[in-house]
Design a binder for these strands. Structure first.
Lengths: 228, 228
DNA sequence: GATATATTACTGACCGGTCAGTTAGTAAAT
DNA sequence: ATTTACTAACTGACCGGTCAGTAATATATC
């Protein structure tokens, strides 16, 4: 996880200082620990003492860098999730090939992010806990959900304009694609061990792409695409 | 919500009894209140005192009928969610028309259940809290998730056997269909007021059906079906 | 039908544990 | 010597669960 982190507590040299002052690196270490603990136990289930323990500091230190549990949670979301949305938008801007290729690319990229257990936990956490935090809910919805959806929408519109995609209720489809990915990743993660016949990551992503392309491509184009 | 519930506290007649003994109806009233409160605040956010208040009893009474908070939660899930799965299975058994019709019927039925705010809350609650309750998680996964999926799987297999549906990774599609419905209902409910351009219930269900039929029907059959 | 007795549904004050947040004080750095 | 990063002990609110007691009803007795 975090190999190059020099432990504060060096091997038992009684003269060595028991801790170091590292105000530069503390915030990130705390966010790291917060991500793990919130992801594992949910917002309410998380004890700040546990976050502190994993970050290698005391509970009081958390309050030097974050003003409350909620603020810590919010900053953690901000730091860990937004970069992924940035990436999707960048891909959209830079791609100049066929819309179908772009769609596959974006879907694969999102899936790659979501199959990372950390992100899967985060997205579960969001649907789970956001109802209790209106302000964070608004932030997450606008900065993550809406921006992701707009990327998909733009791809679909390009495809329709290019005559590659059929006329479709693309406002709905733009919601359906992230929904599929998010829900699958949540399910995969949560139901490990419960499903008697689980799908592999490859089966999921292949399934999503198969389903989406069949739903989106003009029938005449479907055959050569979906087996590519 | 519950119109025919004679209030325990009759209008201020000082001689009227302050409460009545109604051991038959208490459990259901408590489950009713529990559904509302758990749905609103989540498992950890729920105070049993609030459940008691809404059920019109004292907190101690809860423990006459349910042995703990967790038991109350479990019984509530059992009582409120299972009937819906029963219905889907029954529809599958009784239908004898075309597989495409059956698929549409089942999807509409599930959506009708999920657009009920209670159920939407329940499904959100499940993804939110289940990680913390392994036993309840197993129960829910087996009795709700797997059974629902099997219904869809059976429909798809019928359609393939009848030559109406294309060859497809139906194990994946059987997961995708409930995923779409569940995720949409959760989003609709949660994001009320956040989405600048929300979809109506009809747009969602029409979108799901459009998407699913396009993904599932053999191309030759698609045209006459999806506009029906 | 009135009164006494037994039963059980229900109440609400209370307890013990938990945990977010505070603060007094200590160790490191300059 | 002073400033600052950090610790650890502490507080107070909160809440799940308990239980001694009370109010409503059922039954028995006259």
């Amino acid at each position: 996880m975090t190999p190059p982190k020099p432990p504060d507590s060096s091997p038992d040299d009684p003269c060595a200082p028991r801790w170091h002052r590292r105000p530069e690196s503390r915030p990130d270490e705390i966010l790291e620990a917060a991500e793990a603990v919130f992801g594992e136990f949910g917002y309410n289930g998380t004890r700040l003492e546990e976050v502190a323990r994993r970050a290698g500091v005391s509970k009081g230190t958390l309050y030097l860098y974050f003003e409350s549990k909620e603020a810590l949670f919010r900053e953690m979301v901000r730091a860990r999730v937004l970069p992924i949305v940035d990436l999707a938008e960048q891909t959209l801007q830079e791609h100049h090939g066929s819309p179908a290729d772009l769609l596959v690319k974006v879907v694969r990229q999102m899936w790659a992010a979501l199959r990372n257990a950390r992100l899967a936990r985060m997205s579960r956490l969001m649907t789970a806990e956001l109802a209790g935090f209106p302000e964070l809910g608004r932030f997450y919805y606008e900065e993550v959900v809406l921006r992701s959806r707009r990327v998909i929408e733009a791809v679909l519109e390009r495809g329709i304009a290019a005559g590659e995609f059929r006329a479709m209720p693309h406002r709905f489809v733009a919601r359906a694609v992230p929904a599929l990915l998010v829900h699958q990743s949540q399910t995969q993660y949560f139901s490990a061990g419960l499903d008697p016949n689980p799908l592999s990551d490859e089966q999921v992503i292949d399934g999503v792409i198969d389903l989406v392309l069949h739903a989106v491509l003009k029938p005449s184009r479907a055959k050569d695409r979906t087996n590519a």
